[in-house]
């Protein structure tokens, strides 16, 4: 048991190392990962400015821009990574190793977290500075708790998705790509989700991103009208439930998909 834990911890560090080293050796990521997403945030902020929207909406866009970084890290640098690594030939080496698949995924996510955190911080700091966003934080502690619980739920969702990427490769990649804009839309990345109507917003709450963003906005802009979906405490409870459920489902799905892949022979089949 102790040996297994030790091996899994080593696996997390081993897989994270690639990303950490990559960030140091190829500094071009600073341009790709920071400058370009920042410009996208600028574009949406300028749309609001062009429409003479309240300044708070520009704040929403900046905060969303930072959160997008985490979401993209989970979806593309972790979940979809199983697809790429299958194509490279790494996946089968992970699968024959005596470690949990979740440890490998966690390694990818943790390794990417460094770059993601820098990207998110840059968007938040530079975006706030350029557009003069004013934050009014109600409770820092609550903000941190909500942020990390949202991350926990999102990583659970990402691991769940990775089981699909593991087996369905290219098809899963296309599906994830397909849902990029719909996810941005229904989770209210660029506007308060309640604007979609309570029914749609509640349905969108199945995505932890929706609740997380709404709660974080409420906590960051507590002084003004943010058109909240639910009270922060309720959202936090729902996020905790989502975190537990998604992580449990991910564990089950990874085991199930791996077994299904072994039965059908798709697990190591490339170029699908």
């Amino acid at each position: 048991m102790k040996t297994d834990l030790n091996t899994n911890l080593r696996a997390i560090w081993g897989r994270a190392y690639v990303r950490v080293v990559g960030a140091n050796r190829e500094l071009s990521w600073l341009f790709f990962e920071v400058t370009l997403p920042l410009l996208a945030v600028f574009a949406f902020a300028l749309i609001y400015r062009g429409l003479h929207a309240p300044e708070q909406y520009i704040g929403f866009v900046v905060v969303s821009g930072a959160m997008v970084a985490f979401w993209q890290n989970i979806l593309w640098a972790m979940a979809a990574q199983f697809y790429w690594e299958k194509e490279m030939g790494n996946l089968e080496l992970y699968l024959i190793a005596p470690v949990s698949r979740m440890a490998i995924l966690l390694g990818m996510a943790v390794g990417g977290l460094f770059m993601t955190a820098i990207r998110a911080a840059a968007i938040l700091i530079i975006g706030s500075w350029i557009f003069g966003v004013h934050y009014d934080v109600g409770s820092w502690l609550m903000l941190l708790v909500v942020f990390w619980v949202t991350m926990g739920a999102l990583y659970g969702l990402g691991m769940l998705s990775s089981s699909l990427f593991m087996l369905y490769g290219r098809e899963a990649w296309h599906t994830a790509n397909l849902f990029q804009e719909p996810v941005y839309f229904i989770s209210g990345f660029y506007f308060p989700v309640r604007s979609l109507g309570s029914g749609v917003a509640m349905a969108a709450s199945l995505l932890p991103l929706t609740l997380g963003l709404d709660a974080i906005r409420q906590l960051l802009f507590s002084g003004g009208p943010v058109n909240p979906l639910l009270p922060v405490r309720t959202e936090l409870v729902l996020l905790v439930i989502a975190m537990v459920l998604f992580n449990w489902a991910a564990l089950k799905a990874l085991t199930y998909m791996e077994r299904l892949g072994k039965m059908t022979g798709r697990l190591t089949l490339k170029s699908q």
């Binding site: 749309i47 003479h52 839309f185």
Partner: peptide, 13 residues
């Protein structure tokens, strides 16, 4: 959906 995001942004503002 890209267009829908725009629609909502326009409407709410």
């Amino acid at each position: 959906f890209g267009a829908l995001i725009l629609v909502v942004m326009f409407k709410i503002v």
